[in-house]
Simulated assay, not measured.
Amino acid sequence: MDLSNSLIQFIETTGFANLTWGNVLMIGVACVLLFLAIKKGFEPLLLVPIGFGMLLANIPISGITAPPVMELGPDGLPVVKEVGGLLYYIFQGDVLGIFPPLIFLGIGAMTDFGPLIANPKSLLLGAAAQLGVFLTFWGALFLGYIPKEAASIGIIGGADGPTAIFLTTRLAPYLLGPIAVAAYSYMALVPIIIPPVAKLFTTKAERQIVMKQLKPVSKTTKILFPIVATILVSLTLPPATPLIGMLMLGNLFRECGVVERLSDTVQNALINIVTIFLGTTVGATATAEAFLNWKTIGIFLLGAFAFAGGAAGGVLLAKLMNLFVKEKVNPLIGAAGVSAVPMAARVVQKMGQQENPRNFLLMHAMGPNVAGVIGTAVAAGVLLTLYR
């Protein structure tokens, strides 16, 4: 009898006995993300940690995301009763706004701003790609979201996970889970989302436009750019300083030529570590309780509209520019104005090659792509200035 009671008690404490249909569904979603990352190659650096974090968070009674439990001790001071789960503590790097700027530091160190400097018109394309952010912001307001929620949802259109996390933790932290997962999921799905949007707004002849090789940029200009950009953007929009400052510091490490060890660390070890922590904890926010509701579904639908609107905004401005410039711009590069670096630029390069084998758009697309990173950080700074 004692043995049977012990066996029943053991079974009741297993995850199997505590599974809900919501847990099963979210574990299934996690496995789909892992399949897309491993089998299909959809941005595995993002989807593998996100998918596995989602899986971990939906294991019942594991406590891996549980906060610590405090109680008052005999002396009236708080003491820890239960220490909390591993992912809860790592997640504080998201909540406190530590991980997103560190990701920007790594992006800056890995990115060549030369194409943007060589073709300043790229800044306009990156700015136009923020159309999705502000259209979705107004759309969310119309649907009944409060301004802080609408701003956090709209920033998904920048296709920049770190910026979405950075803004949401300051405006609507209770929406961090669905917004972070939506932002990173759409980043990973860039190869699926951008091509139909770009083709919808362009003709075959426009997609076949061949662009001339960009002029080289001097070393001095590349060194001055991150310094000047930090001063101008940060003085204009102080709330954007953590993101812009880290992005430009990383780029200065890359270009100045006197801190190779720092540049190497930021480009490799640091960004890899932060990506593991950030991706896993973002996935861990996708619990059944947080995700299986209409508000979260609405966020994902609005996020998809925001992303598509951003790509469309860049394409449409490129088409408009062609009415006034002598050297025509291939409108496909406008779709790279979203902030997913360098994924969006690679997708544009592939599309250009399919339309015209003589088309080499990668470096041209990197200009709007880098401008999109800056533009999304600026858009976040504007929204923070207005609504924090």
Rank of each mutant, 00 (worst) to 15 (best):
L125S: 12
F91E: 15
P115D: 01
S218I: 05
K212G: 15
L131Y: 06
G84F: 10
L189Q: 02
P195I: 06
K222F: 05
T168F: 05
T169Y: 10
F166C: 11
P101M: 12
P195G: 08
Y186G: 00
F142E: 12
L87W: 14
A159F: 09
K121V: 12
F91S: 15
Y186P: 00
T203N: 10
P120K: 12
I165A: 10
I90K: 07
L87M: 14
G97N: 08
P120W: 09
Q92Y: 12
L86F: 15
T163E: 08
G84S: 11
V181M: 12
Q213S: 14
F113H: 02
T169M: 14
Y145W: 13
F137E: 03
V197S: 00
V190P: 02
F142T: 11
A129D: 04
T168Y: 06
G108S: 07
V181L: 15
V95G: 07
A151S: 03
I107Y: 09
I193W: 00
A164P: 00
D112M: 01
L200R: 02
E206F: 10
L214I: 03
T220W: 12
V190T: 15
I179N: 01
V217I: 05
Y145G: 05
I192F: 11
P178I: 10
K215G: 08
P173Q: 03
G97L: 08
T111V: 08
G177H: 13
I192R: 07
T168M: 07
T169K: 14
A172P: 06
A140E: 06
K212F: 11
L135Y: 05
G93A: 13
Y186N: 00
M211K: 06
D94Q: 15
T202C: 14
Y186M: 03
G108W: 06
L175G: 11
D160K: 04
G85S: 12
P191A: 00
A151H: 01
A205S: 14
I223R: 15
T136V: 08
Y174F: 15
G161W: 11
A188M: 02
I98Q: 07
F104Q: 13
I192Y: 06
L189T: 01
A182K: 07
T203E: 10
A188V: 03
A164L: 00
A172I: 09
M211T: 04
T202S: 15
L175N: 13
I153D: 06
V190D: 04
I209C: 11
S218W: 04
G97C: 08
Y174S: 15
L135T: 07
D112G: 02
A129W: 02
V197W: 00
K148E: 13
Y174G: 10
A151C: 02
A127C: 12
Y184G: 05
G85K: 13
A129Q: 03
V197Q: 01
G126S: 04
P147M: 04
G132F: 00
K215L: 11
R207I: 05
F137D: 01
A109G: 07
P120S: 10
S218G: 13
V217P: 03
A118E: 06
F201N: 03
G157W: 00
F225A: 11
Q92K: 14
T221H: 07
L176W: 05
V197P: 00
P226F: 09
G85P: 10
L189R: 01
G161L: 14
M110P: 03
V197C: 00
P173F: 03
L102F: 10
